[in-house]
């Protein structure tokens, strides 16, 4: 059921009520049971995120390469905070735990794409690019 929820979310953008109903029907459980499971997992979202979900790791290995400063920079630049999206729905931000890129820190993930050795300049360019990207 967990991969089903995640892959469905990728299609729809978030886990909507209709999606819960549909998955409950297919798996043969109640919508409440689906809801109970999905609230446990940090990658599953009940509310829409931005088209580009920017996830900045600030866990220990990234922190030692000043990931906390990158996080502040991104919040400041976009004018949004943790798990918030820009007004046009283009970009959302999330401060995440270790994403398994610790030796190439600091690391950022945009949707499923990894960015390694992120500097302040690279982050700036990345965000500018996402603002314009279709």
């Amino acid at each position: 059921m967990i991969p089903m929820l995640l892959y469905a979310q990728d299609e729809v953008g978030h886990v909507s009520d209709e999606l819960i109903e549909e998955i409950a029907r297919r798996v043969g459980v109640t919508p409440l049971q689906v809801n109970e499971v999905l609230t446990y997992y940090s990658m599953l979202h009940r509310k829409p995120l931005g088209k580009y979900h920017v996830q900045i790791c600030t866990n220990i290995s990234c922190l030692l390469w000043d990931a906390d400063k990158l996080w502040e920079q991104a919040c400041h630049k976009l004018g949004i905070g943790h798990k918030e999206a820009t007004g046009d729905g283009q970009i959302s931000l999330e401060e995440v735990e270790c994403i398994g890129a610790c030796s190439w820190a600091p690391a950022v993930q945009v949707n499923y794409d990894f960015h390694h050795f992120v500097t302040s300049e690279k982050l700036d360019q990345l965000l500018d690019g996402l603002r314009k990207k279709q």
């Binding site: 059921m1 967990i2 991969p3 929820l5 995640l6 892959y7 798996v27 109970e36 499971v37 446990y40 997992y41 940090s42 990658m43 599953l44 735990e97």
Partner: peptide, 25 residues
């Protein structure tokens, strides 16, 4: 293959098995 969905605790062996069975970890 089976995908997780964001939970460190699902790396713990018995929580992983719960998750594999479609439950909370």
């Amino acid at each position: 293959t089976h995908s997780g969905a964001g939970a460190y605790e699902c790396g713990e062996e018995s929580a992983l098995l719960e998750s594999l069975e479609g439950k909370r970890g």
